[in-house]
Design a protein around this nucleic acid. Structure first.
Length: 550
RNA sequence: GCGCCAGUAGCUCAGCCGGAUAGAGCAUCUGACUACGAAUCAGAAGGCCGGGUGUUCGAAUCGCCCCUGGCGCACCA
């Protein structure tokens, strides 16, 4: 990041000296191959036409003026059709080490978000049953995204939208009511659309222990109301517990029921009708979403007077904006992707830019045991819960795995594999690197070997492995920026695997403690300390614990 | 039928706002512990980037057409 900013500033002023603007398509990136320099740019290629000079000639001119004005640049090579490959002096790179150590837990944090207010809504599972593995993935991604965006300079709140109104809650109440009657010995059948999971029976039995057969004397509506309250609060308490165990925090739990009771939904519909965004037809109220790019108009209020979920979702999102958030991010299951254009059009209809509302889609989790797929069905109550997964493989391995893939592609989650402490399980690879450094530092402490971050000491970090490691540390802020810009936590986990790999390589190649030279040991201790810091910062963003011992 | 996502090494996946010889881990084979943690490392092997076509100096990446798989297309939630 530092090198890039430094070079960008200088290149840009050279471009401006020619009376030109920095072209959109010009790149400045660390190339895949070391031979292509520490940083490489296609600037000359892209600018050539506008500047009226052949790419390689332009590159040569830029090269000359840069080398004269910037001592930090050791060499610039011109390659191929006109790429410029920049090589910084080792001293420039080595400055990264004290920079990391000085910034500490803040290393990698950015002003990229510029205090922009963002609301991330995720999980938002109906409180009709415990969270399962799929919710776990959404929880891990949403939570990690919040952490990353905060680190990147956004003001972020995390919110859980509680669908505690409507038909699903009624079904829950009825399911519980019938199970209760069954526990009391009545011969009533569970309707086909009921929740059939065992947790309902457990709740019914708990209910029985508290009230005996007393509820049987109540009117059915009264009994159902009790069942609804009881079921909802118990299940919600379970969800909250699971999320807490999974290290997922929310700033707010937003109740749909309260939204409706506050008449916010009605008001939103009235406004839409008044503003010509909605119309009545066939006894129903319709949103003219086709005016905003949707492929058909959508119903807001059914002809029987019931609100659709879409109606309360529109009101809810309007409400979020009214609380001052500039960008709304929703984390949804990928099976809801068809809902995205409709929600976008609603946001645009409310006078917001389409980009103010973004949806991160989470693909299915394919749960495996011994290589065999485990079939799941929510309605039938046959699923593996998040709590079970946490108990079996632990929070760290689960979270890291959930965050190790692009969220929009399917994920294989093999319970047996994740319990193994092998390379099949990359979380250990990264945590091991962290623990290894801790161990080295302990050893160094025991024998009183110290690290002094002065320039002369740092100069001893002069091998290829030293510089490679340092350059990777220097890229950490770029990684954060990318993850924040693309809403992609998995980029952080890939980065950490890279960094851990380099550390392991370094460790096998170079002696740190007892390196034979006190100052050399000191220099290497500084280096691994800064690696430790970056591993820690990165793991924190994933919600994975940096272990000191394993 | 329409739309969205995916198709990259035997397996699981990165890379995708165009960039140079396409990467990683696992699995396979060969090596490395009398110094700091071998849960590690070094090396080998492995590819018409689903197929075709266009755009251009340059395409895994962008456009169009097809094939395959998943998911959506309600006055459902």
């Amino acid at each position: 990041m530092r090198a890039k900013q430094y070079l960008y500033a200088r290149l840009r002023s050279l471009v401006q000296d020619r009376g030109l603007d920095w072209p959109e398509k010009a790149s400045l990136e660390s190339p895949k191959k070391n031979a292509f320099g520490d940083l490489a740019s296609n600037l000359a290629l892209v600018l050539s036409k506008e500047a009226g000079i052949k790419p390689r000639d332009l590159a040569a001119e830029l090269r000359t003026s840069l080398l004269e004005s910037t001592p930090e640049l050791q060499e610039i090579e011109i390659a191929g059709p006109g790429f410029m490959n920049f090589f910084f002096s080792p001293d420039f790179w080595r400055q990264t080490v004290p920079e990391v150590l000085e910034a500490g837990d803040g290393y990698g944090s950015l002003d990229f978000g510029q205090g922009h207010k963002v609301l991330v809504e995720f999980v938002s599972a109906n409180p009709t049953g415990p969270l399962h593995v799929g919710h776990g993935r959404g929880a891990a991604v949403g939570d990690s995204l919040c952490r990353i965006l905060r680190f990147a300079g956004y003001l972020v709140d995390a919110e859980y939208y509680l669908n505690d109104a409507g038909r699903q809650m009624d079904i829950l109440a009825r399911s519980l009511w019938i199970r209760y009657q069954q526990v009391c010995g009545s011969r009533v059948e569970l309707p086909g659309d009921s929740y059939q999971g065992e947790y309902i029976t457990d709740l019914a039995e708990e209910f029985y222990r508290e009230h005996g057969r007393g509820l049987l004397d109540l009117d059915e509506p009264k009994a159902l109301e009790l069942c609804l309250d009881k079921g909802k609060s118990r299940i919600l308490a379970g969800i909250k517990q699971d999320l807490q165990d999974f290290r997922v925090e929310f700033d707010r739990w937003f109740s749909e029921k309260e939204l409706i009771e506050s008449r916010a939904v009605d008001k939103t519909l009235e406004n839409m009708l008044a503003g010509g965004l909605a119309y009545e037809q066939d006894g129903a109220l319709w949103f003219k979403s086709t005016d905003f790019g949707d492929d058909k108009d959508r119903v807001l209020r059914k002809s029987d007077g019931e609100l659709t979920y879409f109606a309360s979702d529109i009101a809810y999102h309007a409400e979020k904006f009214s609380r001052g958030y500039e960008t709304l991010i929703d984390v949804w299951g990928a099976d809801h992707h068809g809902y995205v254009p409709r929600m976008k059009s609603a946001v645009v209809a409310q006078g917001r830019a389409a980009a103010d509302f973004e949806v991160v889609l989470i693909q299915l989790v394919n749960l495996l045991r011994k290589g065999e797929q485990i079939a799941m069905s929510t309605r039938a109550g046959k699923f593996v819960t998040l709590a079970e997964v946490i108990a079996e493989v632990g929070v760290d391995a689960s979270r890291f795995t959930f965050l190790s893939r692009k969220s929009d592609s399917r994920l294989e989650f093999d319970l047996d594999l994740l319990k193994q402490k092998s390379m099949e399980n990359p979380v250990f690879y990264v945590q091991y690197a962290h623990a290894r450094i801790c161990s080295v530092l302990r050893k160094a402490g025991e024998s009183g070997q110290k690290a002094e971050p002065d320039p002369d000491t740092l100069k001893l970090l002069n091998t290829d492995e030293d510089l490679e490691l340092i350059q990777t540390l220097e890229r950490f802020p770029d990684c954060i920026q990318g993850a924040a810009r693309l809403y992609s936590p998995h980029l952080v986990s890939y980065y950490l695997r890279d960094l851990a790999g380099m550390l392991h390589r370094y460790y096998n190649r170079h002696q740190i403690v007892n390196a034979g030279d006190e100052r050399l040991t000191g220099a290497r201790l500084l280096l691994v300390k800064s690696v430790l810091q970056v591993l820690k910062n990165g793991l924190n963003l994933l919600g994975v614990q940096p272990m000191e011992r394993m």
